[in-house]
Amino acid sequence: MEGFLINWITTFPNFAAPLLLACMGLIICERAGVLNLGAEGLMVVGAMFSVMIIYSGGGILLGVVGGMFAATMLSLVFGIAVVVFRADQVLSGLVVVALGTGITGIVGRAYTHKPIQGIEKFDAGALGDIPFIGRLVFEQDPLVYVTLFIVIAGWYLLMRTNWGLRLRAVGEDPATADISGVDVQGMRLVAVMISGALCGLAGVYLAVVSSQVWVEHMVAGRGWIAVALVIFARWNPIRAIFGALIFGGAESLTPRLLAIGADVPVYLMNMLPYAITLLVLLWPYIRGRAASSAPSSLGHEFLRQDRH
């Protein structure tokens, strides 16, 4: 039992990292007042393009960067639609999911089920032999540590710098930010593209670290879980770390149980990540804290002429 628990907990970061990356991107985007429901589509694009590049011999680094770049370009389409053309943010987000699914379905057909050499875990030698925490802390893959760095840096950028203050002002009260000289639309476009890059990296993680192969539907709703995670974290990156660990833990339970040959209803177990997300999502609402933490201007287009 103890062995099972340690094995299970050791896999938490691996399942939490993609959720956390996407969630971090979405937090930045939503803090600027743009509701980005396209995470699922951005992740698919990141995953597929990174596999395409690596499979074609471009190398891992180029694959990672290329996947992020492709997702950023897709997010730019979304950004132009909602920021410049003031399109409905919910519908435009769904469009991003459709475009991502469609493009990867067509382009990725040639790369489906072709295994690639991805990123492996560190072998920390003696450090990994430290009981309980050795493998958990020292023997993760490099991107897990990068993720942690991104989240902490993101938190600092958002909460402790002038740029972050301006970005949050745009999301809370764009009219006032506009008067103070902040470029509301520019800020929102940048925020959308950051979310594109980070959601793309989340997809890259799934493809290059977790599965090391591209299959259609492999993102399997994780983008939506990340959207829910933002609400659970109440738009705070640090709280998102705990949320991602909870969801990642729920997700990694089924493969662990199957690995030790436990006789469990697989499909009911597969429900767990979604069901737990749902229950955890309800919590801030029932306590009445979700609405008060949300950026005031989230989901609303800004029009200088509407100022009053």
Partner: peptide
């Protein structure tokens, strides 16, 4: 072609 062409 993938059936994803419809959703695209």
């Amino acid at each position: 072609l993938s059936e994803a062409v419809v959703v695209l």
